[in-house]
């Protein structure tokens, strides 16, 4: 259940982002790479528990964007996006790949009202 720790991280980053402001947070956009293995329902559940402790987050909605693993194969030249965790080119099986996405976990933006 690492989603609880991640939900705590979301609250911490957002509260420091809005420090000194009085508006409420309506939405939080999150980008989560597939390699982070986050279960959306577990994250939403954890966040819903934690947000009640902060008035400015009481009605906040999480928008979770799961990012596929993407890369460029230096062997066969193919650019690819895959929705399962592998670290070889899905086309030719080479390990000579430049990885461009799938391992991120960050808050992209928030919307305040």
């Amino acid at each position: 259940m690492h989603e609880y720790s991640i939900a705590k991280g979301i609250v911490k980053v957002v509260m420091s982002t809005i420090a000194g402001r009085e508006e409420k947070v309506k939405k939080i956009w999150i980008k989560s790479g597939i390699a982070k293995a986050i279960m959306p329902d577990a994250l939403f559940f954890s966040f819903d528990v934690l947000k009640k402790q902060h008035n400015q987050l009481a009605d906040t909605e999480l928008c979770l964007d799961i990012v596929p693993i993407s890369g460029h194969c230096n062997e066969c030249g193919q650019d690819f996006e895959i929705s399962k965790i592998i670290a070889i080119c899905p086309n030719c099986g080479s390990s000579d790949v430049e990885w461009t996405g799938g391992n991120e976990l960050f808050i992209e933006k928030i919307e305040i009202i």
Binding site: I6, F106, I107, E108, E111
Partner: peptide, 28 residues
């Protein structure tokens, strides 16, 4: 619809703040 993930509507009069911070930045 939300242009990022289709999760809902966006009122463009409301304020969006770019964040770009790692969620587990404290652990990092």
């Amino acid at each position: 619809m939300c242009k990022e993930c289709g999760c809902g509507e966006i009122d463009y009069n409301e304020k969006e703040i770019p964040v770009g911070r790692e969620i587990l930045e404290e652990n990092s």
